[in-house]
Design a protein around this nucleic acid. Sequence first.
DNA 1: ACCGTAACGGAACACCCCGTCCGGTTGACT
DNA 2: AGTCAACCGGACGGGGTGTTCCGTTACGGT
Lengths: 206, 206
Amino acid sequence: MTAEVGPRRRSDARDNRERILAVARLAFATEGLDVPLREIARRAEVGAATLYRHFATKDALLSEAFAEQMETCSAIVAEGLATPDPWQGFRLVVERLMELHALDRGFARVFTSRLPEAVFAADRDRTLRMLLELVGRAKKAGPLRRDFVIEDLSLALMANEGIRAESPATRVAASRRFAALMLQSFMADPVAAPLPPPVRLPLTRA
Amino acid sequence: MTAEVGPRRRSDARDNRERILAVARLAFATEGLDVPLREIARRAEVGAATLYRHFATKDALLSEAFAEQMETCSAIVAEGLATPDPWQGFRLVVERLMELHALDRGFARVFTSRLPEAVFAADRDRTLRMLLELVGRAKKAGPLRRDFVIEDLSLALMANEGIRAESPATRVAASRRFAALMLQSFMADPVAAPLPPPVRLPLTRA
DNA sequence: ACCGTAACGGAACACCCCGTCCGGTTGACT
DNA sequence: AGTCAACCGGACGGGGTGTTCCGTTACGGT
């Protein structure tokens, strides 16, 4: 799936493609999905048509741009699954996923929606299976409440998306506290643990 | 501020105004804030200009449309404050506010943003003061964790907003479970209590 | 050095939105 | 009934977005 030589491509085209992807990733991450394609083209110093020649539609661009993050998700879950203590693994997954989603608004949005573009479906399913396994272990080991369902994680991630803030830093800080709260509520025999510092939330304008 | 007779108005105009408000409330509640004004005008069987004559700008319409819900919020908090057991009061407030916000997406959005249109500022501040009082009592009584800050409620409400679903019913169900989870994490000496039923989340498309 | 063709970029298309202006219509008071 | 202000709906201008058209450029193999 990578580095197929394919028909010899012109090198400038290849460069443009990379540049567009890089710019798009940054833009979507920091500004969300509704960044105009024109703007991305402009920042990549490319005409609109060029962008469309490389990515037939906006969705296509989104899929490609987020493939990387999708793999990061997989990796996070895999790491959680590899952690000896299932609860620690679960906790790590929740914290890391939420942080990732807080840092990349666009990806968060795509992740909780469904753009079942083939690119995603595979990773998604694999990740989901690993998650189910991890959840099973964490329940069996005791700390995760028995009535937890995988949808509760979706719920938590969607909710995490709702957290808006002026700066990414603020958003991450708020998200961190939120993750700690959620984790607390996921415990079978909860113990009130200290939380990350509260965040002053200067409500966003839009 | 209400029912000023003012200069005799034509009755048809008055009717139109009411109809527009009713339609707008419904539309904003079920579809969010970005319903085109034209669409609202169309549903109210009124021309665009008519709508603008009654409400100078979209923000003006929003303010008027949500004034009612804003009062409902106040009422909820007041009721919570009037509840003998502070924790029960707090719990009631969280549950009711979240349900209200789940039922009315538009209002939720306006509430967690700041449209400090004079109409709101007053209610908002009053409500906030009551909330602080309630939080203080709930902490003093014991059940609410000491490191809870009022921003955590904002956080929870924003997060609640992130919960998307196809139907309002699904959204409310999901929101209910979410509220229960959050309440659990707000407790100083948490006891894992049963949760509302989990919700299958057929991820939304957009 | 040359030239075919892949790749390019700006402008144009089609659509949607907010907010305003205009000529015809209708309610209410005399 | 008559009159006039207030109201009405439709058309208009300005701005924005995803996507496509088409004349032009410049890569890269010979």
